[in-house]
Design a protein around this nucleic acid. Structure first.
Lengths: 347, 347
DNA sequence: GATGATTGGGAAAAGGTTTTCTCAGACGAG
DNA sequence: CTCGTCTGAGAAAACCTTTTCCCAATCATC
């Protein structure tokens, strides 16, 4: 299967192939690239020689000539977070098929480091840059505005007139609340993260809209932190009051899975059944959390991997010279149904 | 601060700098690199011209000539996992200071994809490769044995005669158990993951050794899964038996933080106090879990970021031509003390 | 057999940089 | 004034591949 050429200590060049095949480098190049005119026999002989010698063209030389490096930079400030990983996997997945490699650059929140990385990427003649981050409403600490190479933003705030990909958080929230409605829940609460996050407001707006559309009572969303502890506290506020039982929520839509986990734990401690008495839906579909809750958590998935794929493909198309309109593209979320809100009547 | 040159549509070359400064490219090159002989005045004039024009040397051309690309490949099969991220951050951190960029390649567990990526990296003339993964006792699905460029393994099984960096899991386990001993705990249980993991045995061995050294009773470790659910079940086995209270554990050393979380939750459900009645230590120091347990979890940290740094530096030194002995280097873990086992008498 | 078209293949430039070699001029010593 | 040395700077090769242009030989046609 593998060639039985000895493991060369130094890569074999086109010149060597040409010499071994008794032709010029020009002819060898054309033979291997399917260009030029020559007898089928000559072409085949050169191909065989190249194969036998284990020839692989030097990308550096090719890039220098073609002014295209088949390389892109992926800029992120999300070192440890969990959002950028699926996104990066999607990007990588979209690009590997085109033979494009990805420079990973973590800029933290350091402007100096960001500048450093961008310049390094420019020096290495990347064909384009994808910028991604840990917050959809924050800009990376780098200036990518006048770069003469294409830039795509994904899950981070784009420059004006640039192209950005985001999850449709409002749509995701709709999915969750509609799901509750379809199950016959009537008093749906919303517990979310800090007001400083744009997505908190987008989801809250969708929450209100859906409830209004269904003629259900709209409770003011409870804003706090993205933590389990806040989930606990929110349950205390929602369920420990003196209101009659009929006025307590029968569903809680949470801003992320950690809050949802806190909510579920707190409900269980109070002897309130999930999903029997109260349904719970989370956001992010962080499997390791969603599957560890008891019962397993129904959650909104932002399809980050698909988002990364789209960003990668968009960049590829830009690099290829296809024009594309600036603006933000929102990609739909999906609801992953587990067992924390009961099953829909029909399902 | 920034040069007021207009944003060039095409990068400025050395030739243009030389022309603008009225010298040859050779002289320009030497001026900018501090080589050759020329009047200080000429050198300065060329430097200023380069600065003014925003000249940045084309790395591709440099690499082609120097046979050194200032680029390394980072191979991983840990797409979504949490181990490779801190590790990658460490690698990146060690390399960025040397002006080296990192190609991120996710090979999943796909041999074909691995081969593809390795060849792409070789074509792009990376100076070296770092292989990392999600399991310390599994080999990546790629063959890096006879590659003519340096390879370093980190948190994945190395080839024989290669250089690998690993966390000292046995040492980490010792830290945990010694900590319990220092606190006066006498009946220390061990709940860990599946027997198919090498680290499970290493940690269990260290656990037994420390207990023996202290003359304490050694209970057979409970092996199960890396999940919260298993933590619950393990507590049932340990605490629901008919043994007298004096014979039940007063400490549980867990194989990871999720198990530890399950253990703590299960103990609380039984009315057993943590850390009052039973101390709990986890492994991995996954902050998002360790800080969400009630009380916050003391845990062993594998220092993955440092591991990545060391791996990066080792590769750099190898690329620089420094010889290095093959073998596995174990890096120490550290114990992150929170509140799940009480404070040491002295502390 | 002369002319033109076609075929197979090579020479050379290009891409941007580094480095070695070379050379012209200046300068000092005799 | 001549010889040798030193200084400043340029020419050219090298890295490896692709592509354009060109040439010689073959073939078909009249």
């Amino acid at each position: 299967m593998s060639s039985d050429a000895p493991p060369a200590k130094t890569p074999v060049t086109l010149r060597e192939v040409a010499f071994a095949a008794g032709v010029s480098v020009a002819t060898a190049s054309k033979a291997l690239n399917g260009q030029g005119r020559m007898t089928a026999q000559t072409r085949e002989r050169i191909r065989e020689t190249a194969q036998r010698l284990g020839f692989r063209p030097n990308s550096l030389a090719q890039s220098l000539l073609r002014k295209r490096s088949f390389t892109v930079g992926l800029l992120t400030n999300d070192t440890y977070g969990r959002f950028s990983l699926p996104l990066m996997a999607g990007v990588s997945d979209a690009l590997v098929d085109a033979g494009v490699s990805v420079f990973l650059c973590n800029v933290e929140d350091d402007q100096r480091l960001g500048q450093l990385h961008v310049e390094a990427m420019l020096d290495k003649r990347v064909d384009g840059i994808i910028a991604t981050g840990k917050r959809i409403d924050r800009h990376l600490p780098v200036d990518l505005a006048n770069l003469r190479i294409p830039v795509i933003y994904a899950f981070t705030q784009p420059d004006p007139d640039a192209i950005g990909f985001e999850s449709d958080d409002a749509g995701g929230a709709r999915l969750a609340v509609e799901h509750f409605c379809a199950l016959g829940r009537r008093r749906i609460a919303h517990v979310s993260g800090p007001a400083s996050f744009t997505v908190v407001h987008e989801r809250a707006r969708a929450y209100r809209e859906v409830l209004t559309e269904h003629g259900l009572p709209v409770a003011e969303p409870l804003l706090g932190h993205w933590s389990e502890a806040w989930g606990h506290e929110a349950v205390a506020r929602l369920f420990d009051g003196t209101a009659g039982r009929g006025e307590k929520p029968d569903a809680v839509f949470c801003g992320n899975d950690q809050i949802a986990r806190g909510v579920i734990d707190a409900l269980r401690e109070r002897g309130i059944g999930v999903p029997g008495d109260v349904g719970v839906i989370g956001f992010d579909n962080w499997e390791i959390v969603a599957e560890a809750t008891r019962p397993p958590l129904t959650s909104v998935d932002m399809n980050l991997s698909a988002l990364g794929r789209e960003a990668g493909l968009a960049l590829l198309s830009l690099v290829g010279g296809q024009p594309a309109a600036p603006g933000i593209r929102k990609l739909p979320c999906r609801l992953v149904v587990r067992q924390s809100c009961g099953r829909p009547p029909g399902g």
